[in-house]
Every structure is written in structure tokens, then in C-alpha cells.
């Protein structure tokens, strides 16, 4: 019998976790259409829990294998992201007992597993750190950012469900298509060598057009689908995820500033990635002001949170895969 290497252990944990997320997705789908709803949903949640535990183990073994904090390249960050999606779902959402978010969260986590495992090999291997990254600040600065991105995505997904229960089916479809197109642009940028100008155009064009149309179509309500009580629950989940995500994003941006000041002598240098994180931060600051001031209806707030999701994807993955540079270039492909 050959000995199991730590690398194999890590891969096994990661694979089990990815498969659990995928199975959880199907379990949620079955629960929605099948007979034994509560039982199947229970199974789905256990699968998400299993995926979460295995991924925790995978991340820890990755750290042992690399002999450093396991968050230094894009592959590792996708693991953290999927981890935070599943953890955020279990911690924040499950208590309100919402299964419509479950399948979306499981689907999102699965897609990040796939995205991570299809990354080019040089993005996955454990490489030595460049001088700038050798610092304890790295583990303080990056995890809160990745976790906040995951929470913002959960919030956006919850907003999609809110639109569904509030009967805004047209807006929902438009918003969902927008997210899919944005994701497509990111994937094309990651895996193909299509000219980034076209991808930028695809991302920005579809986001602006899609969200504009979604906004315009809010007046269209399919009353047959409406269940306002449920819509309110998803609205609350959405804002809750933001109220936890925003302090984390703030903490991540600020500790990034402290690190930069410590390493380069300036806490802010308008690096593209930094600026993008600031854009995300500003848009959620706008969101909380819209919320406390009751300026917008729940549906409009949902769309704002979906815009936030798109900006989050742009900050986290889009900037590198759509061909932008900067200090934080751990995701440059071309």
C-alpha cells in the first residue's frame, strides 16, 4: 500500500466538499419538486454542513502542505470563497429556514469549486511568496475580504429570491441573465485568450443594460407568484448579510491600508484592486443609507444589492480576468 501524501489528503477533502455542494444543490432541487420536502431539505443541509467541514479540513491541510497561511493565490482564494458561502449560509440563513436560498448558495459554491479546479496549473501550484507578501498582515487582510465578498454574493442571491416572491418575475429574469453574462465574461477572460476589450464590453454593457431593464420592469408584477411574507424574509436575509459583510470589507480594506503603510509607506496608492474594493464599499454605504432612510422599496433595494453582487464579482475576479493590472496581481493570466 502506498502512503497517502498530505497533498492527496487535501485533494480528497476538496473533492468531497465540492461533490457535497453539488449534491446539496440537487437535494434542494428535489426538495422543491418532490414529496418529502422536509426530509430532503434536511439532507441538503447536512450535505452543505459536510461540504463546509471538509473544506475547512482541506484549507488547513493546504496550509500544512505549503507551510504558510493558505491564502496566497487565486485557487486558494476560491476555496475560501466557497467555504464562506457555505458557512455564511449555515450561520446566517439557515436559522430563518430558507431553502430557496439553499439551492442558489449550493450552486454558487459548486461553480467556485469548478472555477478553481479549472484554473491553469500555474495558478494552483504552491509557489514561494514574493517579498511583498511575506508578512503576517496577509492573513489579517485577505480572509475578511474574501468572506465579505461571499456574504455580498449571498445577499445578492437572496435578493433574487426576494424578487421572485414579490412577483417581479421579469426583473428577476433580467437580473439573473445579467449575472450569468457577467460570469460568462469572467470565465471567458480566465480560460480563453479573447481580446479583453470585448470581454470588458460584454461585462460592462450587459451589466448596465441588464440592471437598467430590470429596474424599468419592476412595475410589472405577476400577482400569482407573490407571497409578500416570504419576500420580506429574503429581504431581511439580504440586508443581514450586508450588515455583516460591510464591517468585514471595511476591516479588510483598512488592514490592507495598514499593511501597505507598513510595507511601502503609504496606506493608499489608488492601485486598481484597491480602488475597486473602495467602489464596492461605497456602493454598500449607499445601500445602508437607502435602507435606513426608507427611500426605496424592498424590490429596489434588492436590485441595489444585485448591483452590489456584480460589483463584488468585478472586484474579486473580474479585474484580473478582464485584463487589469496593479500590485495585487495574484490572478494575472496573460
Amino acid at each position: 500500500m502506498t502512503e497517502l501524501t498530505i497533498s492527496q489528503v487535501q485533494m480528497t477533502f476538496t473533492n468531497v466538499s465540492g461533490i457535497s455542494a453539488l449534491l446539496a444543490f440537487w437535494a434542494f432541487v428535489l426538495g422543491a419538486i418532490g414529496k418529502w420536502k422536509t426530509k430532503v431539505y434536511r439532507v441538503a443541509e447536512i450535505l452543505i454542513l459536510l461540504g463546509f467541514v471538509c473544506l475547512t479540513a482541506a484549507i488547513i491541510t493546504r496550509g500544512i502542505e505549503a507551510n504558510r497561511f493558505p491564502l496566497a493565490n487565486l485557487y486558494e482564494s476560491t476555496l475560501w470563497f466557497a467555504w464562506a458561502i457555505m458557512g455564511g449560509y449555515l450561520l446566517l440563513v439557515r436559522r430563518l429556514g430558507q431553502n430557496q436560498l439553499g439551492w442558489l448558495a449550493a450552486l454558487f459554491a459548486t461553480m467556485f469549486f469548478l472555477y478553481g479546479s479549472w484554473l491553469p496549473g500555474n495558478q494552483q501550484v504552491i509557489t514561494p511568496l514574493v517579498p511583498a507578501l511575506v508578512s503576517y498582515w496577509r492573513q489579517i487582510h485577505v480572509p475578511p475580504l474574501i468572506i465579505s465578498y461571499a456574504l455580498f454574493c449571498l445577499s445578492g442571491l437572496s435578493s433574487l429570491v426576494e424578487l421572485w416572491y414579490a412577483g417581479h418575475i421579469r426583473s428577476l429574469i433580467l437580473a439573473a441573465v445579467t449575472i450569468v453574462l457577467a460570469g460568462t465574461a469572467i470565465c471567458l477572460g480566465t480560460y480563453t485568450s479573447i481580446d479583453t476589450v470585448w470581454l470588458q464590453l460584454l461585462f460592462v454593457g450587459s451589466s448596465i443594460a441588464g440592471m437598467f431593464l430590470a429596474w424599468r420592469n419592476l412595475s410589472h408584477i405577476a400577482t400569482a407568484k407573490a407571497d409578500q411574507a416570504k419576500a420580506n424574509v429574503y429581504d431581511e436575509i439580504s440586508s443581514k448579510a450586508i450588515s455583516v459583510g460591510l464591517p468585514l470589507l471595511t476591516f479588510g480594506i483598512i488592514t490592507g491600508g495598514l499593511w501597505a503603510n507598513h510595507a511601502w509607506g503609504t496606506y493608499w496608492s489608488w492601485d486598481p484592486k484597491e480602488s475597486m474594493a473602495l467602489v464596492t464599499w461605497i456602493s454598500y454605504a449607499a445601500y445602508i443609507h437607502l435602507r435606513v432612510h426608507h427611500e426605496l422599496s424592498a424590490e429596489r433595494l434588492s436590485l441595489v444589492s444585485i448591483i452590489g453582487l456584480i460589483l463584488t464579482l468585478l472586484t474579486y475576479l473580474g479585474f484580473n480576468s478582464l485584463g487589469f493590472g496593479g500590485l495585487h496581481s495574484y490572478g494575472r493570466f496573460k
Binding site: K273, M276, L278, V279, I282, S283, A286, F324
Partner: peptide, 15 residues
């Protein structure tokens, strides 16, 4: 809200 949106757009362009 208006100012924050404008700021977001400008920072986005700068990025």
C-alpha cells in the same frame, strides 16, 4: 446617495 454614486463611478474609472 447621488454623491456616493458619482464617487463610485469616478473611482471605477480610475481603477
Amino acid at each position: 446617495i447621488v454623491l456616493l454614486s458619482l464617487l463610485a463611478v469616478m473611482v471605477l474609472l480610475g481603477a
